[in-house]
């Protein structure tokens, strides 16, 4: 067992596409076992930042560094949940088995991890159901279960509850809080202020591709240290 790949350090990240600067001067650190909420309006660059941190895109400027591990370790010890759940055309169980296989988890360890993941997500009864027959809420829960099955050091989530009803949202938030308590660092992108209040320990407020303000969740949300963040949190439309 190698040491945690965290902390993750991003220094002066920038991303330019088609001569447009989409992210600029982003510096942040993600420590072990933390719960960070990236908040901001649409088009602020939240999803893009997540993809850079997860290694799906290369930043145009700046660096991302991890504390430990080879590049293969880093791939294995981080996971991401996307806004729209994408599952393979096979059973609930087979989807998790596939993910564990792709991450290089030894065959003998897989069934135990699958069982645990299904139990935690409340999907044990649906294990043999075809994944695409689940409701959207259950599908997203399966996405989270699949991402957490290998007990990653860090989990990125890109607005995972954007189109879900309150019960489904609650179940997913519970899964995230439990995983966080077991030591997985969570980075959650959302534009839902009340969700940030419910789960976040630290808030990073993104606006126009830059970090506009950040701080510990309760104090930042009650008393944001930037005008744009204050307007956003007050429910005003930012243009």
């Amino acid at each position: 067992m190698i040491k945690s790949i965290l902390p993750l350090r991003a220094v002066e990240l920038g991303y330019i596409a088609n001569a447009r600067t989409l992210l600029d001067g982003i510096s942040l650190t993600i420590n072990r076992g933390t719960f960070t909420v990236v908040l901001g309006p649409n088009g602020a660059g939240k999803s893009l930042l997540l993809r850079l941190l997860h290694g799906m895109l290369e930043p145009s400027t700046g660096t991302i560094s991890w504390a430990n591990g080879s590049s293969a370790d880093r791939r294995r010890r981080q996971a991401m949940v996307f806004q729209r759940p994408v599952h393979l055309r096979r059973s609930v169980e087979a989807n998790i088995v596939f993910a564990l296989g792709a991450l290089g988890i030894p065959r003998k360890d897989r069934s135990g991890l699958v069982q645990l993941a299904l139990e935690r997500a409340g999907l044990t009864a649906a294990r043999r159901v075809h994944a695409r027959l689940l409701s959207v809420g259950e599908q997203q829960r399966l996405s989270v279960a699949r991402a957490l099955a290998a007990e990653p050091d860090i989990l990125f989530l890109d607005e995972p509850t954007a189109s879900l009803d309150p019960v489904s949202v609650h179940r997913i938030e519970t899964l995230l809080i439990e995983a966080n308590a077991r030591g997985t660092a969570i980075v959650l992108v959302t534009h839902d202020v009340s969700q940030a209040r419910r789960v976040g320990q630290k808030i990073v407020f993104l606006h126009d591709g830059r970090i506009n303000g950040q701080g510990p969740a309760p104090s930042f949300l009650d008393n944001p240290n930037s005008d744009v963040a204050r307007a956003y949190l007050a429910g005003k439309i930012i243009v």
Binding site: M56, R75, R76, F82, V86, L88, R90, F98, A102, L103
Partner: peptide, 24 residues
């Protein structure tokens, strides 16, 4: 196009990528 991000996130590449897509 549908699976790309999810499979890349899981580190699925090469032969596993082709066989996964063909099977699905």
């Amino acid at each position: 196009a549908e699976y790309d991000e999810q499979l890349r996130s899981l580190g699925v590449r090469g032969r596993r990528l082709v066989t996964t897509l063909l099977w699905d």
